[in-house]
Amino acid sequence: MTKLAVVEVKLLTREPGAIFALLIPLFILVVFGSSIPPGDTVLLPTAVAIAVAMVGLYLLPTTLATYRERGILRRMSTTPVRPANLLAVQVALQSVLALTTCALLIAVAGTVLDAHLPTAVGTVAVTLLLGTAAMFAVGLLIAALARNGRTANGVGVLLYFPMAYLAGLMQPTSQMPPLLARIGEYTPLGAFRQSMHQVWADTTPNPVLLAILVAYAVAISAVAARFFRWE
């Protein structure tokens, strides 16, 4: 298991996609961050949501679908180590990547950009974890249904833009048609962005939003597990 984790870490660092998943949100943060007022509470939660969504929707499903497409999961099922271990290592590793990116974003925003940092660290952690779980569940579903790595990647891209729009990551929700903004609140990414925003504004996140995240995480993972094929 340890060796498997070490090898997967090495592979992740050699994967350009992983570097992009780290750099793109950082780029967005820095570009838009130059014009934010001190103590801003909007940009950073937005960048964090983008970072988690990119890992969950692109990187995780593409990696897993490629592993299946290449017969790596199947090959592993002929060894004493079950391929489920590889899946677990990947999910853990990609979570670490997503959370590392978030930490980096927060560090940059807090020091260089002078953005507001929330005081309730525990609430931040819980909200971040629930949001990551919901986005990863979507990623696992893509991995379960996509025929190969390329399809998974394409589906990830296709899902990302509408989800990001509905979540209010493209433009403030106040400028969106009210109906779409309303729908957006109940999408996984929308609920995540909104609850992060509330945490950042030092208010308690709406429990309904957190419950929505939990529901998405559980339900979508269950569907993904039901349809996941090892070969």
Binding site: E15, T66, P80
Partner: peptide
């Protein structure tokens, strides 16, 4: 079957050896 393109030969052998 294929392996990940970025996996080195020795890493593949070392990894699979650790399974047994």
């Amino acid at each position: 079957t294929r392996l990940p393109d970025n996996l080195k030969v020795w890493e593949a052998l070392d990894l699979y050896a650790s399974f047994y």
